[in-house]
């Protein structure tokens, strides 16, 4: 459970006093109801630039829902979401991505019938040329910026040697890596990852954790991670937010969360730490 070398103060001081970075993402009184069910209950959290935040909680706690609200996949019932100080709650999902929030899905969400390279190129195209363009008579060989970014991305996630395979032929772990690659190619300021290691073998999990560590070091990326594997959560995060039944029940450094009786009670009761 090493704390991050870049932010040595995190583990020791109180969360609010120590963080000097600007607030990147902020939710204010966010509520999402599905019929009678309150899946997100008055959630107000903030994420600072450069910070790694994990969201944990039992199944059905509302973690995915919260992520989906931030990415604008779901419409909040009430509340506001600010990114870089700007409200994004009226925006379309692609506008949010263009502003710098990228998401890795809970399942390997890729373009199966396209090659691995094309998968990366799609994301690179959106990153380099924006949400839309009238370039339908431009041969794509001319878009060298897109090709370079796509290649760099594949290199970063270690899939360059498989660039010309169809994406659907990749083993599951590689698909998930590609999925993370697609999210990274958007060159986001904030990366949201919903259970990036779900369904992976132990080796694949390790490789993915290494990948996340690497990205964290190299790109200095801010990310919000939803994860069930406590070992990964405690080793990677600067701060942990615990959700239960839609609401935040605790928030703090890994050490604080580990010692929090409410968390022990609600969630970690059966888990060996």
């Amino acid at each position: 459970m090493s704390s991050d070398p870049d932010a040595p103060s995190d583990a020791t001081s109180t969360p609010d006093a120590s963080r000097s970075g600007e607030t990147l993402l902020e939710t204010r009184g966010l509520v999402k109801e599905f019929g009678g069910l309150v899946a997100t209950d008055d959630v107000s959290i903030d994420v600072k630039r450069g910070e790694r935040v994990s969201i944990i909680g039992p199944n059905g706690a509302g973690k995915s829902t919260l992520i989906n609200l931030i990415t604008r996949r779901l419409e909040p019932t009430r509340g506001d979401i600010l990114f870089k100080g700007e409200s994004i709650v009226q925006m379309e999902p692609h506008q949010v991505v263009q502003r710098g929030i990228s998401k890795s899905f809970q399942t390997a969400s890729i373009f199966p019938d396209l090659t691995v390279m094309e998968n990366a190129q799609i994301a690179a195209l959106a990153a380099e040329h924006g949400e839309f363009g009238f370039n339908f008579l431009t041969h794509r060989d001319k878009l060298t910026d897109v090709h370079e970014l796509a290649e760099d991305t594949l290199e970063a996630v270690g899939l360059l040697d498989r660039a010309h395979n169809d994406a659907e032929d990749l083993p599951y772990g590689d698909k998930r890596r590609l999925e993370i690659g697609i999210a990274l190619a958007a060159e986001p300021d904030l990366l949201l990852m919903d259970e990036p290691t779900a369904g992976m073998s132990p080796e694949e999990t390790q490789a993915t954790v290494d990948l996340i560590e690497e990205v964290k070091e190299e790109m200095g990326l801010t990310f919000v991670l939803v994860e069930h594997d406590m070992e990964i959560v405690f080793s990677i995060s600067d701060r942990i937010v615990v959700l239960n039944r839609g609401g935040v029940i605790a928030e703090g450094t890994p050490e604080e969360i580990r010692g929090d009786p409410a968390v022990q009670e609600a969630y970690l009761g059966g888990v060996e730490l």
Partner: peptide, 17 residues
């Protein structure tokens, strides 16, 4: 082709699908 394959993902890489 990306839209055909996975419309939602295309939207979430930042394309105005």
């Amino acid at each position: 082709r990306a839209i055909r394959e996975n419309e939602q993902r295309a939207e979430f890489v930042g394309l105005n699908v």
